[in-house]
Computed example of a mutant assay.
Amino acid sequence: MSNTRGRDTAAEMSVRRELHQRGLRYRVSYRPVPGLRRTADIAFPRQQIAVLIDGCFWHGCPDHYRPATGSRSHFWADKIEVNQRRDVESSDAFIAAGWLVLRFWEHEDPASVADQISSTVREAAETIR
């Protein structure tokens, strides 16, 4: 587990490349709530939009997650459950602080994810002006 990336995963990098091609600039591993040790994978501070890209295994994707079998299956089941609970708590904390939270799975097409993020950011930018 120590070799598991906490940031700059392949899914994040693909989405970030797509966003950059669309002319969007963003912050990476940004803490939307000061004092809370939770980060957004991609953040647009001015528009207060936090983007989270969840890994299918680590966050229990309903389409791709397969429970572990064997001697440590209980450990992994508990680990995924704790991760899912933390995801909900993080989203709730970000929302309570006034942020819009966009969550995606790593298996989603980076171009369509970037399209959704881009349109949301541009709409939010228009309301700020």
Rank of each mutant, 00 (worst) to 15 (best):
residue 39 T to Q: 09
residue 42 I to G: 12
residue 122 R to P: 07
residue 44 F to Y: 13
residue 29 S to W: 04
residue 59 H to A: 04
residue 106 E to F: 04
residue 96 A to R: 05
residue 72 R to A: 10
residue 105 W to I: 02
residue 55 G to N: 14
residue 42 I to Q: 11
residue 128 I to F: 11
residue 76 W to Y: 07
residue 104 F to M: 08
residue 121 V to T: 13
residue 29 S to A: 13
residue 49 I to Q: 14
residue 50 A to R: 01
residue 18 E to M: 08
residue 100 L to H: 09
residue 4 T to A: 04
residue 112 S to I: 09
residue 32 P to Q: 02
residue 64 H to N: 10
residue 19 L to E: 03
residue 45 P to W: 09
residue 63 D to W: 06
residue 72 R to T: 12
residue 102 L to D: 02
residue 53 I to M: 13
residue 117 I to E: 07
residue 66 R to N: 00
residue 12 E to F: 01
residue 13 M to I: 14
residue 69 T to F: 01
residue 29 S to V: 04
residue 70 G to S: 06
residue 77 A to I: 00
residue 2 S to L: 12
residue 86 R to M: 06
residue 47 Q to L: 05
residue 113 V to T: 10
residue 90 S to C: 07
residue 53 I to L: 15
residue 103 R to M: 03
residue 102 L to R: 02
residue 97 A to R: 05
residue 11 A to I: 06
residue 101 V to E: 06
residue 126 E to K: 09
residue 68 A to L: 11
residue 50 A to K: 02
residue 72 R to I: 08
residue 109 D to F: 01
residue 125 A to C: 04
residue 55 G to M: 12
residue 20 H to Q: 08
residue 22 R to C: 05
residue 111 A to W: 12
residue 51 V to P: 11
residue 59 H to Y: 03
residue 118 S to V: 06
residue 125 A to P: 04
residue 3 N to H: 07
residue 108 E to I: 05
residue 90 S to R: 12
residue 110 P to C: 03
residue 126 E to M: 03
